[in-house]
Nucleic acid binder design. Structure first.
Lengths: 188, 188
DNA sequence: ATGTTTGTACTGACCGGTCAGTCTAGAGAA
DNA sequence: TTCTCTAGACTGACCGGTCAGTACAAACAT
């Protein structure tokens, strides 16, 4: 015994919650289930997070922080292939490393009129902005609005193809999948 | 007055339900809310559908029927531009005409371990199959698995970009959006 | 001492599903 | 025409269960 990384309970709760919510949805996942899956008392959930909704927004902001950080560094890491290619690669890696969060994002991005719409709107804006920037980078004098549509298209392509991969063809190699996505998404 | 189209109640319930579920999710939408939005008594919901889950699967199968029908005819309608282009165009039109259903699809496709996973699996398989076929058509001697990944990428690109359009830039013209998506998705 | 976790028990609101009964249009009988 | 009967569509009050959130005393940690 002896391990006691501060915030360990918090982590366990968040991890268990993302996993459950990814499969069953937010409303269909009870706090009791989350606590049990996290191996933690229900009271601890309410001690570390004020409410179920708070827990969810925490999940969202925590995930978006990691995601956009990775995306930004990928964008700014030398122009080896193309900016867009680097972004797609980074996003695909994120999806593979944390499919549960990817599912949650996919399920919630276009939901309007929710309490946490603010949080989900943030993740949307930031992710889309990076992709739009990459598109614009590879092709200046392009209508910014067009760049945004194209950016969301690239984002959607990677997200859906990535989840398709993990859900229905989990045995395929990451390289093959990445190559296929790039073949579809890369512009002449 | 005088109208009495058979199945009118059914329609009202389905329409109201899709709208609510698209915004709040399945579990977060109560049958009472659906009934009220449909201007119908709660009992009518259970008269026309056996259960809440039945209502949802009805929504799904009804939607997937219309979707795949449109997709298939689009695929088989002369090779004017390319098969993939025709498919993207048809899907985008569907999304514009019925954004609520598109949101539901986006939210539920990658959810595993649900009761209606069967229905949602159907919609997934059929839609992806059409797209994979289109990709393969434009490029024989291609690994079918690759075609499937690329098909889902095209599907995801259109879905996400389409919803992005309707949710965040609703004033843009359909033609512009379609052009932007095609510019991202079309292969050399 | 202070902050964190646990376990259990509890509450109040809400939600899926039921059911006895209403409404309406049509069919047959007088 | 008028009355009765029937069957299907629809209604809304109600019931049992579930769930978010609370309360709290004891254990544990730093």
């Amino acid at each position: 015994m002896s391990e006691l990384p501060v915030g360990a309970t918090r982590r366990q709760i968040i991890d268990a919650a993302v996993r459950l919510i990814a499969d069953h949805g937010f409303s269909a996942t009870s706090v009791d289930q989350i606590a049990e899956a996290a191996g933690v008392a229900k009271g601890s959930v309410y001690y570390n997070f004020g409410s179920k909704a708070d827990l969810f927004t925490s999940i969202l902001t925590e995930g978006i922080t990691r995601l956009t950080a990775n995306l930004r560094t990928a964008l700014e890491t030398g122009p080896e292939p193309t900016p867009l290619e680097r972004l797609v690669t980074a996003l695909l890696r994120q999806i593979r490393d944390n499919p549960a969060f990817a599912k949650v994002v996919a399920a919630e991005v276009f939901r309007t009129g929710r309490d946490w719409q603010e949080s989900i709107g943030l993740i949307h804006d930031q992710a889309m902005a990076v992709f739009a920037e990459a598109v614009g980078l590879g092709d200046p004098d392009l209508d910014p609005l067009d760049a945004r549509v194209m950016g969301s298209a690239a984002f959607g392509a990677t997200l859906v193809a990535g989840l398709e991969w993990l859900t229905y063809q989990p045995d395929r190699s990451p390289t093959d999948v990445l190559a296929a996505i790039l073949r579809m998404v890369r512009r002449a």
